[in-house]
Every structure is written in C-alpha cells, then in structure tokens.
Amino acid sequence: MQYSEKVMEHFLNPRNVGEIENPDGIGHVGNPVCGDILELYIKVKDNIIIDAKFKTFGCGAAIATSSMVTELVKGKGIEEALKISNKAVAEALGGLPPIKMHCSVLAEDALKSAIDDYLKKQGKNR
C-alpha cells in the first residue's frame, strides 16, 4: 500500500487513542465497505470540543484518519467541527490512496455521530 509518510507516522504513533470517561458525545460507526469500526469520544465545554479520543478496528488508513480527525477537532467549536470533511482529514495526512478514501469517510461520520450524540443530550438538533 502506498501510504504517505504522514499516514504512516499517524498509524505508528496515533494521537488520542482511548476512551474518555463520561464523554459528552460518542460516535460509533461501522464501515459499510469493509466492515471496520470506529468509536469516537468527545468532551465539550462552552460549545468547544476540548478533548477527543478514538478506538478503531480497521486498516492503517482508518487508524491514521481517526488519529488525525481527533487532532483536527480539538479546540474547535461545534459548528466549525461539523465542517470538517473527510477530504480535509485526508489532505491533512498528505492524501490517501483512492481505494482508501472511504476510510476517511468513516472518520468524518464518526465525528458527526459523536456531535449528534452530544447535541441530542443537550436537547438540541443539528
């Protein structure tokens, strides 16, 4: 697999692995393409995502995009975080092989689902 150096770096040293105790939002998504799973936890304070962690059952790209999306989202407001697209995650990693683009979709979906979960708990809707 032709992964960029950045992908390999995040795969080998993923940031923010783990779970958050008492998270404000949890995203749990499965990859319909290959069957892999991503869990994403967020902690929100004053509408700002102050912490994010993940657990991933998936390929190198899935782990690297999980790591990158948690990095990108930290410190961002909810509105802003919702704008993070899978393309942005892939670009931040120096690109992904075409066949692995769907793994970045998994990361985007997990983030959205975590935010939705948070909003629901707040009694709000996206």
């Binding site: 697999m1 992964y3 390999m8 080998l12 290959c34 390929c59 899935a62």
Partner: peptide, 25 residues
Amino acid sequence: FIEGESIILSLDMKGIAVSSGSACT
C-alpha cells in the same frame, strides 16, 4: 479484534513480510 492490514504494516516496519485475507488489504 484487529484488522490484517494494520498487522501487515506493523510487521513490515519490523522487516517482516506477510499477507492477509482482510477486506482492507
């Protein structure tokens, strides 16, 4: 509990070459 490609990549970093029946690979 884990996926084959990530095992292959990790082994490759250690100089070991294997293959997998994982969908991801």
